[in-house]
């Protein structure tokens, strides 16, 4: 990240490397907790405060943590972008069938699975979108 480290003294470089390694290791330890918390927020979004947008932002924090730890631009931006477009198409089709076409009146037992599925769609879409933003700004615009 720091390109002019050759101008600093060796001691400062050592301290910086040590602190970066500390942050990397501690952030890496947070991966499973962030993932579990995000999935919990999305999965319980129809019953408790939370939902797709909030859980998706937390899941994007997972990729933000990976950006801090790894510093590798191995994200296939166009693949992720196409996946996001596909999720948006599903986001149009599923409520179009279930809510607007009135299927929820015929099948009232599908209401809660519909809510959970929609929250997962929105959450994945928000997470992928914010991940693209973070990676693009972090690697190309933030220098």
């Amino acid at each position: 990240m720091n390109t002019d480290s050759n101008e600093t003294t060796e001691l400062a470089t050592l301290e910086q490397t040590a602190s970066e390694e500390l942050i990397s290791v501690m952030t890496g330890l947070l991966y499973p907790f962030i993932a579990v918390f995000g999935i919990y927020i999305i999965y319980n979004g129809h019953d408790t405060p939370g939902g797709g947008f909030q859980g998706g932002a937390i899941m994007a924090a997972l990729f933000l943590a990976r950006f801090i730890v790894a510093h590798e631009n191995d994200l296939e931006v166009h693949f992720v972008h196409n996946l996001e477009k596909f999720l948006f198409a599903l986001l149009l089709i599923v409520p179009g069938i279930f809510v607007f076409a009135g299927l929820q009146i015929q099948f009232p037992e599908l209401k809660i699975p519909y809510l959970i599925f929609m929250n997962f769609l929105i959450g994945m879409k928000v997470a992928l979108g914010l991940t693209i933003v973070v990676y693009r700004f972090g690697f190309f615009e933030g220098r």
């Binding site: 409520p95 809510v99 009232p108 809660i112 809510l115």
Partner: peptide, 17 residues
């Protein structure tokens, strides 16, 4: 109407889709 336990989720996923 929606089966949700959270009125916000009921509104943003059903009434105000």
């Amino acid at each position: 109407d929606t089966g949700a336990g959270n009125a916000v989720a009921a509104i943003y996923l059903n009434y105000r889709m």
